[in-house]
């Protein structure tokens, strides 16, 4: 008999106050409480974290890489959104 699948979770850790939670890896657990404990036991053994989020992997909705053109390329031409687009004489100094 095939072994039944235990749900997969994604783990996000805030390593220091002031930083955002960052994806660090995954684990398997049957429920959220055990997932949080497993995340602590697996991903913070060397003092890597101050706060943990666990999210069921199947709760994540991801963009489709084949739609990369439609999704992300239109932003590339809007260079006026970046400070370097504007000419300010050097003598004005930092702005």
């Amino acid at each position: 008999m095939a072994t039944p699948n235990i749900p997969l979770w994604e783990v996000f850790i805030r390593s220091r106050n002031g930083l955002a939670h960052k994806h660090v890896g995954s684990l398997h657990a049957t429920d959220a409480t055990l997932a949080l404990q497993a995340a602590r036991d697996i991903y913070t053994r060397r003092g890597e974290g101050l706060s943990i989020w666990v999210v069921p992997s199947n709760a994540i909705t991801a963009s489709d890489p084949s739609e990369k053109g439609m999704m992300f390329e239109p932003a590339e031409s809007k260079i006026y959104r970046h400070p370097t687009f504007y000419d300010v004489p050097d003598e004005v100094g930092h702005m």
Binding site: L8, E10, H23, G25, S26, S57, N58, I60, A62
Partner: peptide
């Protein structure tokens, strides 16, 4: 992202 859930099934045209 380390997630299986993002993977589509074998029937998907990407395969």
């Amino acid at each position: 992202m380390y997630t299986q859930a993002l993977n589509t099934s074998d029937g998907d045209e990407r395969h």
